[in-house]
């Protein structure tokens, strides 16, 4: 059990827990305006202060984090549900036309930087949270396809896979029964990394107006609002930023910890 894993799990649980808590409770209603009370520094009444419209920043961050997590999670789901089958299929027949096509396709998608992809989609369909999810989801597909294929290829050379083939099992059958469970560790680790990245991507896209649209609060939207006011009241920029760093660090540490914790078992099985 590593320290990294414990810190990561604790940090992620705390912050994601706070975000989920906003479903049932927030200190204040995050939509209620209170202009006379605007730009209050952190204090007893408002633990993290208020924004330019007098809204409670803690409540906003809780709700905003929930939005950001939702965006990241949906994009992750798109990447996993398409990337993993593609990676398994490519590894099944290494080097044949299917593998070549999938890997070439991956290269093409990789040639579009995430932000450029989001810009293109927004230019065509207009800005929305959905388009941010689709853009990051598409970006995630080749990531998971590569991880899955990379993990699966050496497995196909292993003798237990040959034994399964001698037992007459089809490639697809073997992929699901033997390959998938053995690349699961890699997918869990990559999944936490992409999830963390998703939080940052949502923030960046919403910051430049390509992501979540008003009035829905998100961490990136809060920072966009704060940009012009940061000199007057730094806390309205600092709080959402620290929240992003906290969640991302928590998830990354969790991913690192999981990699260390899951690896020795594989090692043990091998040697």
């Amino acid at each position: 059990m590593t320290r990294t894993l414990i810190i990561g799990a604790a940090l992620s649980t705390l912050l994601i827990g706070l975000a989920l808590l906003s479903l049932v409770w927030t200190p204040y209603d995050h939509t209620s305006l209170n202009i006379p009370n605007k730009l209050q520094p952190p204090g007893a009444a408002h633990l993290l202060g208020t924004d330019h419209l007098g809204r409670d920043i803690l409540s906003m961050v809780m709700v905003g984090a929930r939005t950001s997590l939702g965006v990241a999670l949906l994009a992750l789901a798109i990447g996993l549900s398409l990337g993993v089958p593609l990676g398994l299929a490519a590894a099944m027949h290494k080097g044949n036309w299917l593998d070549e096509t999938i890997m070439r396709g991956n290269d093409i998608v990789f040639a579009f930087p995430l932000l450029v992809m989001a810009i293109l989609i927004t230019a065509v369909f207009g800005p929305s949270a959905t388009n941010a999810i689709v853009a990051f989801g598409i970006f995630n597909i080749p990531v998971f396809a590569r991880v899955t294929r990379g993990g699966a290829l050496p497995l196909w050379e292993r003798e237990f896979i040959l034994a399964a083939r001698v037992a007459g099992k089809s490639h697809a059958h073997i992929s699901i029964e033997h390959i998938l469970p053995n690349v699961l560790n890699l997918l869990i680790v990559q999944g936490t990394i992409q999830f963390a990245l998703g939080i940052q991507v949502e923030a960046a896209l919403s910051f430049v107006g390509l992501g979540v649209q008003p009035p829905t609060p998100s961490l990136g939207r809060m920072l966009a609002d704060a940009q012009t006011l940061v000199t007057l009241a730094p806390h309205i920029a600092i709080v959402p930023g620290v929240a992003i760093i906290g969640i991302v660090m928590g998830l990354n540490l969790l991913g690192d910890g999981l990699r260390d914790a899951l690896d020795p078992r594989l090692q043990k099985a091998r040697t």
């Binding site: 292993r158 003798e159 237990f160 040959l162 034994a163 399964a164 001698v166 037992a167 007459g168 099992k169 033997h178 469970p181 053995n182 078992r265 594989l266 099985a269 091998r270 040697t271």
Partner: peptide, 27 residues
């Protein structure tokens, strides 16, 4: 049937013996 060289690589580490040695039943 076949018996391979590597005693460590010829079984899926995630399955129990009962499932491992009955794999040829698939045939």
């Amino acid at each position: 049937q076949v018996v391979f060289q590597d005693p460590f690589g010829s079984f899926n580490p995630r399955h129990r013996v009962a499932r491992l040695i009955t794999e040829p039943f698939h045939l």
